[in-house]
Amino acid sequence: MKTDSNIKLDVQEELAWEPSIDQTKIGVAVDEGIVTLSGEVDSYSKKIAAEKAAKRVSGVKAVAEDIVVKYPSSLDKSDTEIAKAAVDALEWHSSVPDDAVMVKVENGWVYLTGEVKWSYQKYSASNAVKNLVGVKGVSNSIKLKQEVKPVLVKDTIEEAFERSARIDAKGIVVTTDGNTVTLSGKVHSIKEKEDAEKAAFRSPGVLNVVNKLRIQYYPSYA
Rank of each mutant, 00 (worst) to 15 (best):
G171K: 05
W92G: 15
Q121N: 07
A83F: 06
A53Q: 09
D22A: 03
G171W: 08
A89E: 05
E147R: 13
I157W: 09
V187S: 01
Q23F: 15
Q146I: 08
Y221V: 12
E91W: 13
K55N: 08
L75G: 00
T180I: 11
F161N: 02
S94I: 15
D31Y: 07
K8P: 05
N208P: 00
Y111K: 11
A165H: 14
R56M: 08
V173C: 08
V209N: 04
P97K: 05
M1I: 08
G59F: 00
K55Y: 05
K149D: 01
Q23K: 15
F161S: 03
V35L: 02
E40V: 03
P219N: 01
V63L: 10
V96M: 09
V138P: 09
D168S: 06
K122Y: 06
V30E: 06
K154Q: 12
A54R: 04
P19D: 09
E18L: 05
V148L: 08
A200Y: 00
K70A: 07
V11E: 08
V28C: 10
V63S: 09
V87I: 15
N127W: 10
D168T: 07
T176A: 14
S78D: 08
Y71H: 00
L75S: 07
E40K: 10
V129L: 10
A125P: 12
D31C: 10
K2V: 12
G205L: 07
H93P: 09
D76M: 14
V28I: 12
G178K: 04
S58D: 14
A86I: 04
V181K: 00
D155T: 03
T176H: 02
E40Q: 12
D42M: 02
W17Q: 10
A85P: 10
D4N: 15
H188R: 12
K46P: 01
S20Q: 10
S164P: 01
E106Y: 04
G114N: 10
E32H: 12
V105R: 09
L183D: 02
S94L: 13
W118N: 04
V174M: 10
A86M: 07
K52G: 04
K70V: 01
E162P: 03
V148R: 09
V103N: 13
A62L: 08
T80I: 10
A86L: 03
R214M: 11
S95N: 13
I172H: 05
E192N: 01
A49F: 13
S20W: 12
L144T: 00
G59I: 02
S119K: 06
S126R: 14
M1Q: 03
V129K: 11
V135S: 04
T36S: 10
E81Y: 02
E159H: 05
V11D: 12
K70R: 11
V68W: 01
A100D: 03
A125V: 05
T113P: 02
V116W: 02
T24I: 05
K122G: 12
Q12P: 06
K122W: 03
K84M: 13
D168P: 02
G39I: 00
Y221W: 09
P150V: 05
I172L: 11
N208S: 08
A128C: 14
I157F: 10
S95V: 03
